Simulated scan of single mutants.
Amino acid sequence: MPNAAPNVPDFPDRLADLRFADLLRPHTGPLRADERYDTVHFDGGEYTDQAAAGATFLECALTGVAFSGVKLRQARFTDVWVQSGRWVACDLSDGEWQDSAFVGGVLAGIAAHGSAVRRVVFRGCKLEAVNLRAAVLRDVVFEDCLLRDVDFADAKLTQVSFPGSTLEEVHLRGAALTRTDLRGAARLGLPDGHLGLRGAIINSHQLLELAPQFAHALGITVQDR
């Protein structure tokens, strides 16, 4: 079997351990559209209903930041480290995330459809009502996360894994999975998962749990007597 382990950088859990930590300078003022933020530290701020579409974030750190209703459509995030952040009702659609990490924090009511997510780690995060329809995810890890009502419909997932994560109402209808490893997930709540699991890797226990969905999809009636 081809290697299914995502190829992601080794991200630290502490700000001081970032390789660009000594270069960071504090951010002040509002977010701006099409702005380039290079080696900037966003620390503990609150950003509400601001528009920063097309902005670029390069080698930035965001610690304890709260985004609410922020419009970041087509924004680009490269080498960005996010810790204990709160993202609520934000528009991240058609954006790009690469070589980045979310450590703790919450993403709720997020529009991220059409996004490209490459070599990104989500560690100890809660994702609720996140729209990743038609997104492209490659080498992505959801580690010890809660994914509730996350929509991967028509998305492309390549070498994505979910070690220790709980999946509740996660939708895969129409998704294209390649070497996507679900074996480490603590729970698989896939209401229509049988329609999008082709290309996934699961273990025998998970197969038994999903057997009723597979039988229903194939029109099989299971009856012992």
Rank of each mutant, 00 (worst) to 15 (best):
V136L: 07
T178Y: 08
R118D: 04
I202T: 11
V88M: 10
A75Y: 05
T166D: 09
H171W: 07
A61S: 01
G164H: 08
S204C: 00
D149K: 15
L107A: 15
K126S: 12
W81G: 01
W87A: 06
P212T: 07
G95W: 07
D79S: 10
A52Q: 10
R86I: 10
L195R: 14
L58Y: 08
R73Y: 02
L172P: 10
A215C: 07
E128P: 06
D99M: 00
T56H: 14
D34Y: 13
A111L: 04
P6C: 14
A4M: 08
E59V: 01
F11T: 01
G95S: 15
R14W: 04
D192K: 11
C145Q: 13
G45I: 09
R123G: 09
C145D: 14
F142P: 12
L23P: 01
R76F: 04
Y47R: 11
G114H: 00
A75W: 04
E209Q: 13
A176P: 00
L182F: 13
L58I: 07
W87E: 07
H171E: 08
L182G: 01
G174C: 03
L188Y: 02
L132C: 09
R183T: 14
A185P: 01
E143N: 11
G184I: 02
Q223A: 15
Q213G: 02
V117L: 15
G64V: 08
A16V: 06
F67I: 10
T39S: 02
G95R: 01
D91V: 08
R123C: 12
R225D: 12
F102H: 00
H205A: 08
V170H: 13
A112T: 07
L58A: 11
D139H: 03
P30T: 01
L58S: 05
A155R: 05
E128N: 13
C60I: 09
E169L: 11
D151I: 08
R173C: 12
C60L: 08
P6N: 09
G109W: 05
R179A: 14
G193L: 15
V150C: 11
A21I: 00
G199F: 01
D151K: 15
Q83M: 05
L182H: 05
E143R: 14
D224K: 02
I220T: 05
R32P: 01
V65F: 02
T221A: 09
